[in-house]
Design a protein around this nucleic acid. Sequence first.
DNA 1: AACATTTGGGTGAGAGGAACACAAATTCTG
DNA 2: CAGAATTTGTGTTCCTCTCACCCAAATGTT
Lengths: 409, 409
Amino acid sequence: MFSRRDAIGHRSETVRRANLSAIVRALHLRGPLSRSELGVGTGLTRSTIRGLVGELAAAGLVDEEPSPSAGTPGRPSPTVRPDSDAALALALEINVDSLAVAIVGFGGTIHELVRVDRPRAHLSDVDITSDLIELARPQIDALRDDPSLVGVGVAIAGVVRRSDGMVRHSPNLGWRDVPIGERLTAALGLDAPLWVVNEADLGAVAEHRRGAAAGADAVLYVTGEVGVGGNLLLDGQPLVGAAGYAGEIGHLPVNPAGQRCGCGSVGCWETEIGERAMLARAGRRRDGGREAVSDVIAAARAGEPRALAAVDHVGTWLGIGLAGLVNVFNPTLIVLGGHFERIHPLVADRLEQVLDERALRASRELVSIVPASLGVDAPVLGAAELALEPFIADPASWLRDERRVAIGG
Amino acid sequence: MFSRRDAIGHRSETVRRANLSAIVRALHLRGPLSRSELGVGTGLTRSTIRGLVGELAAAGLVDEEPSPSAGTPGRPSPTVRPDSDAALALALEINVDSLAVAIVGFGGTIHELVRVDRPRAHLSDVDITSDLIELARPQIDALRDDPSLVGVGVAIAGVVRRSDGMVRHSPNLGWRDVPIGERLTAALGLDAPLWVVNEADLGAVAEHRRGAAAGADAVLYVTGEVGVGGNLLLDGQPLVGAAGYAGEIGHLPVNPAGQRCGCGSVGCWETEIGERAMLARAGRRRDGGREAVSDVIAAARAGEPRALAAVDHVGTWLGIGLAGLVNVFNPTLIVLGGHFERIHPLVADRLEQVLDERALRASRELVSIVPASLGVDAPVLGAAELALEPFIADPASWLRDERRVAIGG
DNA sequence: AACATTTGGGTGAGAGGAACACAAATTCTG
DNA sequence: CAGAATTTGTGTTCCTCTCACCCAAATGTT
């Protein structure tokens, strides 16, 4: 009926919720701030900031402490510090060659982060679920009765339906239509909402909030693990599309005369720049994984012709695809993750050159390319950010006892 | 400093502005509605709707009239009708082979719409500006002192910087870095803000508001005039990117072994599916324009082999590119405009087939393809919608005498 | 030591929507 | 045809929330 933009039913309470959220978001993203800085940032008056911060402090979500004098005249403004235990997210990651668990608190504090590498193998969802639950057992038990837990985020390498966490397809896990959201919700037994999202989307979110893309407006994130994924971030949010499947940029057709792709199509970008393609071209085992990639990079640095050619080929085709995406998205920043981050120093010049040749000048001028900065942990940290989002977006629900009502009803 | 999402400084007035906007937007998009329907749509109470509608009526923005009885029990709710003269947009279009002028009012009423065809030729911005001003003279004079004019929208075939209406590049007009926004603002002499936007973006907006994509959530619009353009619409808004250059999907690289493109790259989508490519492949003059396209379509229907092959080639490559964009955007609907709309009946089956073969299944399942419904007028109508947007988004500014203050200050 | 500057504290005012009670206009029922 | 049921308009009161204003407090400057 009415579109989302009609912003149904505003009232005074809406204002308070929005203002509390603005304060909490600022603290979460930018760390401790003085009351006065919060006022400048939100445009609210001192009286209002006082009231809102006071309420957050009374609820234990933030602490106020005297600021060291800043050397400027005037009464010093107390520092408002987010309480990193006041809101907690459990983050899980199911990757092709590792599992990870993290607990992240309000403000971005990483309380725990555990990762175990495992051999690449196709495992059933049942096996992976039990392995993951076993790995996360201490964290799960610790959070079971903790009212500060606000959500669970799961990063997974695959095409995921956001509404219910159904993995529609994951070539690298060998899954099709696996209801991992349901499985994990049941297995965890936690009283918190759970979201499952594509790991590239979450990596992008993490880089935007805590990494190389901090604060940038229109960011194109491109990552290569086994597959090639990514997304455009607008105001920190990845494109979702109809069901959450957006961002499968690895399956852009760039070379219809090229090779058959695992997706069934021909000449997808992934077939030119994916890890397996690069390894094969360098004469390595296609499934060599991280070590094989390291080997190729080292060899290319040392001047081995096949390795050099393979890296160069990836650089060129990465540039060709990026040029197209620059034309479509007009980003200010391109962040390269996964093996693209690792080969970035070797291909940076080539990338710039290909963009000069093939992207529209207007968009080309505005974009720069940087490597990612969070490494392999980007997706799990993004999952934590996702899980914290309901708290950040509406902290009022976590004041008083609204929460139980909201979840119960 | 703070991101847009912090929604700086909410107060009571914010609420009223948002609620007024919700009502005005509903009336604009969905036509006359009863007070009671407005209440259901916005979630506001009868008291509040009464106050807000009363204010709009007092300002002359809407009229209330008794409803014919609906056959249901209960007191009938009066119909609230947008006053189509209360807010007016002047819309202009500079296309390769035509100029157009329209005046559109609140509610979408098209008061005037004039289009003149002209031979394709590279004309300087000075010439085009004066031709356009001459064509629009009656409308400009009529609007000069009309306080109901809320904005001017200009649709143009080219890469446009949104902030100031600078045409960075328009291959078909032969322009580079032409400040058409400045030119037109000066030449019009109207006391209203003016925006210049890429015509494909505006065509997409029009199709979403009044055409084939009405109300759909994630829409991919693809149009072929001389070039190939389009965009993704999220909640009715096209992607903008850093400066407004997003949506140049005609310059996605799909066939690096293909032909050189006018943009300087090689194998852009446009070189396979653009009008010129189709005409050349059919053995017609590359610059034959609309008539030549009609000729090819008629010939293909009649079974002429070269025409059939050309149309088929476009169908296949259109499908290949769409498959990629479906993977990237996960739209629910693809709307084909321009010459794609005209050949749609001939290529519909082929498109579906190519999507089946090449798009990821999860996204493929959700998308359907339809021809556009507004024809050549889509961009100019989109320009009108754009120009009306400030009024729709904040009608409170047009109540009382806030407007002069807002523009003056 | 006096003054300027900046910020916190507290109170009152204003804006705006919701809740509630009542009236009005229509359909339904017998 | 009369009365009940239903839905909606009208008007008042109440509640929430921010802002403006004044004063006090804490710091730097002269």
